[in-house]
């Protein structure tokens, strides 16, 4: 593989709940806890996890849409966390985001032409007189008619709006895009359109994606490598085929088992030997002391018997269990 375009080191994002007059002692939510990741040029790294696992927060803190508590994010050698104000704003066109909610992420009082033209204008990517024709070019690229430019967001369907959101990201001429659940608000038949569009654009424009989603099937389809998050931590990271064929972490295993496959025969087969995960994700305000997954882990006993380690007190480290296959579980240390 080529050079990493983004290198995330020991990134943590902790939210302190305001300790106001009446709210008692401050509680710390570790939304993202000590994450290490590398995204390589031209690849798609998928980031999956259930709601509240911190995957969106991770995406946002990589792009400095919220300032991480600790850690570094190197984009082509520049530490973005250290950049402030104007210096950061000037670099922002290089890395862009596609948002989950196509309704909330477009300013309702701006015309499509202005929404897509804004990054070009801010970063002076084109002479002002050419912005309009550039906007039309990008509209065509994302599969929209050029006369859409003079209309307002509310005139469009969810799928069309998501195309507009993608167009806005592309207008900045980025090489790295974080897509935060870009299809989860869309209907099934529209989802495939957007996935195909994103793949085509990636090939045409040599883009690098960090693709965040909760739907493993979608992530597997689009990404080269995949990271699985649970309670703010990355549990497993390897290429997408391996994660399905040879998942190491017990959480990944149970997650895969829980995802329904649209094939009745296979489902019956799987049901016979499916291990359902008990309980629920613990509150991130009060995570377990040892391994984040220990409260639900079906293989906790096995760890204790084979490794003589108590998962609920000792947290595993995130290490390379097999070449290119990283996981955070005592079973593989």
């Amino acid at each position: 593989m080529t050079e990493p375009i983004v290198k995330v080191k020991n990134l943590s994002m902790h939210f302190g709940q305001a300790s106001g007059f009446f709210s008692g002692p401050q509680r710390l939510v570790k939304a993202v806890d000590n994450v290490n990741l590398e995204v390589f040029e031209g690849e798609t790294l998928g980031l999956v996890g259930e709601s509240g696992c911190g995957k969106s927060t991770l995406g946002r803190s990589i792009l400095q849409l919220c300032k991480p508590t600790t850690g570094t994010v190197q984009y082509r050698g520049t530490d973005l966390v250290k950049l402030e104000g104007k210096a950061l704003r000037k670099m922002r066109n290089r890395f862009q985001m596609i948002y989950q909610d196509p309704y909330a992420s477009l300013n309702p009082r701006m015309k499509i032409a202005d929404i897509i033209g804004e990054p070009m204008y801010i970063h002076q990517l084109h002479p002002r007189s050419e912005i309009r024709s550039e906007v039309e070019k990008i509209l065509k690229m994302v599969g929209l008619a050029r006369d859409f430019a003079d209309r307002y967001p509310h005139e469009f369907s969810g799928g069309q709006r998501q195309r507009i959101g993608i167009a806005r990201a592309l207008a900045a001429q980025p090489d790295f895009i974080v897509a935060d659940e870009p299809i989860s608000a869309l209907d099934v038949s529209i989802q495939a359109q957007i996935i195909n569009l994103m793949r085509n654009l990636q090939q045409q424009l040599k883009l690098t994606y960090l693709f965040i989603a909760h739907d493993l099937a979608v992530v597997r389809h689009i990404s080269d490598r995949m990271a699985v998050m649970y309670l703010g931590k990355v549990m497993e990271l390897t290429d997408s085929n391996t994660i399905y064929e040879d998942p190491l972490h017990p959480y990944t295993q149970s997650l895969l088992a829980a995802i329904p496959i649209p094939d009745p025969e296979k489902e019956r087969e799987r049901e016979a030997n499916r291990v359902l995960l008990d309980g629920e994700v613990p509150s991130p305000e009060n995570p377990p002391e040892g391994c984040a997954f220990c409260t639900r882990c079906p293989r906790k006993r096995e760890v204790f018997e084979t490794k003589k380690i108590d998962c609920s007190t000792k947290a595993p480290t995130f290490a390379e269990a097999k070449p290119g296959h990283w996981t955070a579980c005592h079973l593989y240390t």
Binding site: R60, L63, L65, R89, K90, M91, R92, N93, Q96, M97, Y99, Q100, D101, A104, S105, L106, N107, P108, E118, P119, I122, H123, G165, R168, A171, A172
Partner: peptide, 13 residues
């Protein structure tokens, strides 16, 4: 609102 985040994301002051 998310469009406000989006504006920050494209580098708007």
């Amino acid at each position: 609102q998310e469009y406000c985040t989006a504006a920050r994301g494209i580098g708007a002051s």
